[in-house]
Design a protein around this nucleic acid. Sequence first.
DNA 1: TTACTATATTCGCAATTACGAATATAATGA
DNA 2: TCATTATATTCGTAATTGCGAATATAGTAA
Lengths: 115, 115
Amino acid sequence: MMPDDLRRFKAEIFHGLAHPTRIAIVELLRDGELPAGSVVARLQLEQANASQHLAVLRNCQIVTSQKKANQVFYSLRDPVLIEVLDILKRYFFTQLTQTMSLIEEIKTEEAQNLE
Amino acid sequence: MMPDDLRRFKAEIFHGLAHPTRIAIVELLRDGELPAGSVVARLQLEQANASQHLAVLRNCQIVTSQKKANQVFYSLRDPVLIEVLDILKRYFFTQLTQTMSLIEEIKTEEAQNLE
DNA sequence: TTACTATATTCGCAATTACGAATATAATGA
DNA sequence: TCATTATATTCGTAATTGCGAATATAGTAA
């Protein structure tokens, strides 16, 4: 096994998640299996667009699909990705906090420069 | 703050990581700051290509850069992303193990079908 | 000042992505 | 069998991506 295989795998997963709509789909599936139609309705997507995004998620092994009658049910292949999303949520709020602190600092400096 | 802001943020980070070369760069920076030239040499990249990948990482706030004389040093903005990479490593090996088990199963079934 | 080193940016090219509309395919119901 | 529902795939289009080559920009040394 080459280190590059692992990197390629990771890059594939990251690519699958590199779109807000696909993140929203994964978040939706966090609570369990859903039919494609529900994904369309709950995220208010064009059917074709949802289907394309679901295909991306299928192809990079983030979700699994199961046909039941005329419906296709989607679920997360592994809940570990939720952990990844939660880590990034933390990161986002850290960055946000730091940005706001920086803005406050700049404001303070400018106020002092006016004195 | 809209939920979509968070998703867009996440998608941006995932996009930054959605290429094996950029993952390799992040892994390299795990151990600390490096000049761009070292990234080029250690990963054996074309200079221009490395620079483009570094620009992507800069633009999505994964790395920070600092100019010192005629060199630019890069470092990870936050080590949390290493955690993300490590989680995906686990995931990869889980999937690999499951795939191998499946192959074994299929082999066993085929051997039985020959009896 | 010119030459060299370091690295960012642009260029040209081909491939890929994302969207909505259109179409194809599969399953169910009347 | 035809009509309807469900959803995947293709199409057309514009935008984006990734590569190496070429070029631009910045800093240092001679």
